[in-house]
């Protein structure tokens, strides 16, 4: 049994709806509703759903950027909310993230080498020449030559920026990489390159992946397990191959048919 490195237990996130002059809470919106999701060491989980499904919110909660209103997140068995000091820092080292928009996820004023080195500096993992060679090694892993070091984000293409983001994420040798719509903003051919790179990283480094995406095909390529979310709830979860062949939940079936753009799909139940 592989060790569970990140787990969401009955995680719920509600946002109050405020109305009236005094802005009192008249109700709540449940962005995430009682979700159980676990990622094991070296495992790959794809979290899919449409907009409003709560997948991005869940991801942000699991990575500690947001606190849940109910339930808890466990990092290697320990509650994430209770982690302080060294333990908290260790969590940041072990869990890394890449974002959807490569343009916005890099500090426009920093050069590539500073961007990639930042996690190492934050955690004081390397300095001087050791830092330098680490930067070069990271760039090489994402197939960028060292001449990219002095460039700034605006001088890079979308694919190159995403690679820099991946290099930065790999800086602390994380155990889990959370990918939030990693190829949605990229050209098809470039996105395929990134997908393939992520696949290689998974294989060569035993990296666990949590991929959040609306693109079922991409998730099916990269992940061994798929979790389907709809309106805050996890409707189905299981091994990819099986989920695709024999989806249980009607929503999963719907999603699969739509993902291959089957125009005969019956969508009369869906309000729009």
């Amino acid at each position: 049994m592989r060790e569970t490195i990140l787990e969401a237990r009955r995680v719920t996130k509600s946002f109050p709806i405020r109305a009236g002059l005094l802005r009192r809470a008249v109700g709540e919106v449940r962005a995430v509703d009682g979700v159980d999701l676990a990622v094991s060491a070296g495992g790959t989980v794809g979290l899919v759903g449409e907009s409003g499904s709560g997948k991005s919110t869940l991801a942000r909660i699991m990575i500690g950027l947001m606190a849940p209103t109910g339930g808890e997140v466990l990092a290697q068995g320990a509650p994430l909310a209770g982690l302080r000091g060294d333990a908290r820092r260790a969590f940041h080292r072990h869990v890394a993230m890449i974002f959807q928009d490569p343009t916005n996820s890099l500090d426009p004023r920093q050069r590539v080498e500073a961007i990639v080195a930042e996690p190492l500096r934050i955690h004081r993992l390397a300095t001087g020449r050791a830092l330098d060679s680490r930067i070069d090694a990271l760039l090489e892993t994402v197939r960028l030559s060292p001449r990219f070091r002095r460039r700034r984000p605006r001088e890079l293409s979308g694919g190159e920026r995403q690679r820099v983001g991946i290099a930065r994420a790999l800086a602390t040798d994380p155990k889990l990489l959370v990918c939030d719509e990693p190829i949605a903003s990229l050209d098809v051919s470039v996105g395929a390159q990134i997908l393939e790179l992520l696949g290689q990283l998974r294989v060569h480094r035993g990296l666990a992946l949590l991929m959040i995406s609306h693109d079922l095909r991409a998730v099916a390529y990269l992940c061994e397990t798929i979790a389907v979310m709809s309106r805050g709830k996890l409707v189905e979860q299981g091994p990819t191959a099986k989920l695709i062949e024999q989806p249980n939940h009607p929503y999963t079936q719907l999603l699969l048919r739509c993902a291959s753009l089957d125009l005969s799909t019956d969508l009369s139940q869906k309000e729009d």
Binding site: V188, S189, G191, A192, Q193, L195, E196, G199, R202, V203, R217, A218, A220, Y221, L222, C223, E224, T240, A241, I244, E245, S260
Partner: peptide, 14 residues
Amino acid sequence: CRPAWGAVGRQLST
């Protein structure tokens, strides 16, 4: 470039 369905981890020709 389009990953084939059910091709978990198989080589993607890019």
